[in-house]
Write a protein that binds this DNA or RNA. Structure first.
Length: 880
DNA sequence: CGAACAAAAC
């Protein structure tokens, strides 16, 4: 029909002329109906006509795909440079670059000389394949054929050289083009952006302006796309938006989309929407940008509304739109929403699309309680790419099937997909979670073998895995070979060192970080504060507090929570409460820090009323809250209340008690003398009794003189940890207290025979950043402490405080505290001071004692001059 | 007559 119409409109002409006009018309309008002239041409014996054949070839390439075009091309009896170039460009356009270059070789082999069109097409394929050598050869042909000044060829060559890292050559070409046109400059900027050379791209932009070439919409679209990765926030994007207006670049749909995307990526959806309304054109790309913008700031409701508006306006969603919507669903963990979009995807037949498939895998892994649906989605992807595999591997690791994720990693490699840095950091994260350093080393080995780049994500994962597995030297050596390090590198190292109890090294990380010029963020601050809390180093803690205030990270709950914890640990509840009061919205962790701080510092009733305040503030208590509460009750001897808290966990708060809670419960019952109930708890709890719970009960037996049960507990402890001297000492003290001192001595002898030594009681004082360590093994230091304590006692006596001293020089810290008007000393164990040994029996009361000693000095001397001697600057960790 | 260079959403 069309043939007839066309021939009618162009008549009167000959048959050959008619066919040519039909083909030409169809070619320019991409009308596949044009091929209906194919058989008439053959019938008419016109297949040798190159004009007709080339036109037909072009139409096949445009409307029927490369395969058909190639078939037609192979059947052509005669081919000229246009025929070759047409089929070649069809391959290049369809990203069949390897085949395109093969064709180019065949063309040269057939003796056909290429022209500027052929060469630029072949160069594009070289660029795409990174075939620098071949590209340079073609460049030589360009020079030989005298086509050097052709601006299109020059631009294609600039693209090739920039992508192959030969920026010098690219600059030469630009100079040869007499600074070129805007296309050449934009190409250069575009290639630099695509190869992540952001700074160079900006420099070129500046030079372009200096050369008097003005940017157009293409240039701005590229530059705007860069704004989100530059880490400059809004400032850079806004500047570009302003320049765009100043240069008078006309707003079109693509430019608008790029600006909307820029604002969306900065989280400024209001601005993004304002820009989107500037011109009336909307397409699926713009709508998808808006949807993913809302998703990024977790405004999923708005994202869904945009999706509905989009359909109302008659724009059809595509694979990218559904991928964004599935991401939106998984970002708020809504399986329901995700499933709705999944069904829409099935209705529109996009199930086997790679973007949709990957988003489905991710959504089901994050929102569903098993991996089954995600696996089903994965199986639906025709040829999974590295993103599909990585989502699958990460999902299995997240659901606790680390072994399976290792297996999938191997499957991925077997299927010919190479891991990228995200895959590698994910799989190493799984090793870290399992504490499997054999696996960690295996993957580290793979990275070295395949010469994969240890980028920041992979490096950080390795540091975390090695440090988490205790291979701290390996962690440091990875840090040494990484090109750049960020706060995450040092935070994960410090956090792992904290976990292992090596707070001292964790604090040393601060210096490395500052030498490396890596700035602390809220997460690293939290880790360092926790290290300072672990060491009870108030001075370091205060300095970190100062940094938090100056850097503004004090506003982050993670930082202020760590500060509450730190001051609680250091015995300065005054500071802890001050920090707590400044928290805008205290979360469960903040309240837990306050409650535990109050409880460990002996303010039992305050701790319990803080819990009431927490509930009044509407913050849901978690399992740590109850741990602190039961601990508080145990310390305060509040047996019934403690039990009430324990049982309310499941009944009222739907929290399942963990082993830690049972340890506290046993402590509570044991201290209260209910040893039988404690035994029953151990027997009936859903956990296997561990070392700590047995030791806790042994301690209770010691307090209440139950030898039989104590012996049983000591035996169970030694089965679990045969070389723990604390058990021998507890048992020996139990015998002593029960009047069997010969058994006590025998136990101590047995301990010595087995080569075990008690770890020394240690304490340290921090004065002006300097740490003074006192150990019960080092006589000199003991004397120093003893001297100070005796100074205090003399002072007290001189001032007429009622202080009783028994033969053993045993004082009750309660007495000391009362004497100084400090009422908040924890339930007391006595502090024993001898001439030759100083034994800290209760860690917290010891802190208080040393504090008091120093406070006395302040009172005696000048308070202002010695302000660094304020309470809490003495720290103590002790063993009984 | 036909063939070539720079742009957005994952």
């Amino acid at each position: 029909m069309l043939c007839r119409t066309a021939s009618h409109s162009f008549s009167p002409c000959g048959f050959q002329e008619t066919c040519l006009r039909v083909l030409s018309f169809c070619n320019s309008h991409s009308l596949k109906e044009g091929v209906c002239v194919h058989s008439p041409i053959i019938k008419g014996g016109l297949q040798d006509d190159l004009y007709l054949s080339n036109n037909l070839l072009s139409l096949y390439a445009k409307c029927f795909g490369v395969g058909q075009a190639r078939h037609f091309f192979d059947e052509m009896p005669h081919k000229d440079v246009v025929s070759w170039t047409t089929v070649l460009s069809a391959h290049t356009r369809n990203k069949l670059h390897f085949e395109a270059l093969e064709l180019f070789g065949m063309m040269l082999g057939s003796g056909q000389c290429p022209n500027e069109f052929t060469l630029s097409t072949a160069l594009r394929s070289c660029s795409a394949l990174g075939e620098f050598e071949f590209g340079a050869q073609i460049h030589a042909s360009v020079v030989k054929l005298g086509l050097e000044a052709n601006p299109v060829l020059g631009t294609t060559l600039i693209d090739l050289y920039t992508e192959c890292d030969c920026t010098v050559e690219a600059h030469k070409l630009l100079a040869f083009l007499k600074d070129g046109d805007i296309v050449a400059w934009t190409t250069m900027i575009s290639s630099l952006v695509e190869t992540s050379k952001w700074n160079e791209a900006l420099q070129i932009y500046v030079r372009m302006i200096e050369a008097g070439v003005y940017p157009n919409e293409f240039t701005f679209v590229k530059l705007l796309g860069m704004s989100s990765v530059l880490g400059l926030g809004m400032s850079y994007g806004k500047l570009l938006h302003a320049q765009l207006i100043i240069f008078g670049v006309e707003m079109n749909l693509v430019v608008k989309t790029a600006i909307v995307d820029m604002y969306a990526k900065c989280g400024r959806m209001e601005d993004a929407i304002k820009v989107s309304k500037q011109i009336p054109e909307y397409d699926v790309c713009l709508w998808t940008t808006i949807i993913s913008g809302f998703t990024q700031i977790l405004q999923v409701r708005e994202a869904v509304i945009a999706f509905l508006d989009m359909q109302l306006s008659g724009v059809l969603p595509n694979n990218f739109t559904y991928a964004s919507l599935l991401n939106a669903s998984s970002s708020i963990l809504s399986l329901e929403l995700g499933e709705q979009f999944h069904s829409r995807v099935i209705v529109v037949g996009l199930m086997d699309d790679i973007y949709v498939g990957n988003a489905l895998v991710d959504m089901y892994m994050k929102c569903f309680h098993t991996t089954t649906n995600a696996v089903k989605a994965f199986r639906g992807i025709a040829s999974p790419n590295v993103i599909s595999w990585t989502s699958l591997i990460a999902g299995f690791a997240k659901h606790g099937f680390e072994e399976k994720s290792f297996q999938l990693f191997a499957e991925m490699q077997a299927s010919g997909v190479q891991p990228n840095s995200i895959t590698l950091s994910t799989i190493i994260g799984a090793c870290s979670k399992m504490k499997s350093f054999v696996q960690t080393m295996k993957f580290h080995g793979l990275i070295i073998k395949t010469k994969a780049d240890i980028d920041i994500a992979v490096g950080n994962a390795l540091v975390d895995a090695y440090a988490g597995g205790g291979m701290v030297d390996e962690a440091w050596s990875v840090i040494g070979i990484m090109n750049h390090r960020d706060p995450i590198t040092y935070t994960s190292l410090a956090a792992r060192l904290n976990q292992r109890g090596d707070h001292e090294m964790a604090l040393k990380v601060i210096n490395c970080m500052s030498n490396d010029e890596v700035k602390m963020d809220e997460f690293s601050l939290a880790s360092f504060l926790s290290a300072a809390a672990g060491l009870r180093t108030m001075e370091t803690g205060r300095q970190l507090h100062c940094y938090s205030v100056k850097s503004g990270f004090e506003r982050c709950n993670s930082v202020s929570n760590s500060l509450v914890h730190l001051y609680g640990k250091c015995g300065s509840m005054h500071d802890a409460q001050r920090v707590f009061k400044d928290i805008n919205e205290p979360d469960a962790v903040s309240w837990n820090g306050l409650i535990l701080g109050l409880a460990t510092n002996g303010h039992i009733s305050h701790a319990l009323s803080a819990f009431d305040d927490m509930r009044l503030a509407g913050v849901k208590p978690d399992s740590v809250t109850f741990l602190s509460l039961i601990f508080a009750c145990s310390q305060g001897g509040l047996l019934d209340l403690g039990l009430e808290y324990f049982y309310s966990m499941e009944k009222t708060h739907h929290l399942t008690p963990k082993l830690d809670h049972y340890v506290c419960l046993v402590d509570l019952l044991g201290r209260g003398g209910h040893l039988e109930e404690a035994v029953e708890v151990i027997g009936t709890m859903p956990f296997k009794p561990d070392f700590l719970i047995c030791k806790t009960l042994l301690n209770a037996c010691k307090l209440h003189g139950n030898v039989a049960l104590g012996e049983d507990m000591a035996r169970r402890c030694l089965e679990l940890d045969p070389s723990n001297p604390a058990i021998y000492l507890l048992l020996a003290n139990l015998y002593d207290n029960a009047g069997f001192s010969d058994f006590g001595d025998k136990t101590r002898r047995l301990m010595k025979e087995r080569g075990l030594r008690r770890s020394p009681g240690q304490c340290w004082m921090e004065v002006k950043s300097k740490i003074y360590l006192f150990s019960s093994r080092e006589k000199k230091d003991e004397d120093e402490i003893t001297e100070k304590v005796e100074f205090l006692i003399t002072e007290m006596k001189n001032k007429g405080y009622p202080l009783q001293e028994n033969e053993d020089k045993l004082y009750h810290s309660e007495q000391l505290a009362l004497a100084f008007g400090v009422l908040s000393v924890p339930t007391m164990a006595p502090i024993r001071i001898n001439k030759n040994s100083l034994v800290c029996i209760h860690c917290h009361s010891f802190i208080m004692l040393v504090t008091l000693v120093i406070d006395r000095q302040i009172i005696v001397r000048d308070r202002k001059r010695f302000h660094f001697f304020k309470d809490g600057q003495c720290s103590c960790a002790g063993h009984s």
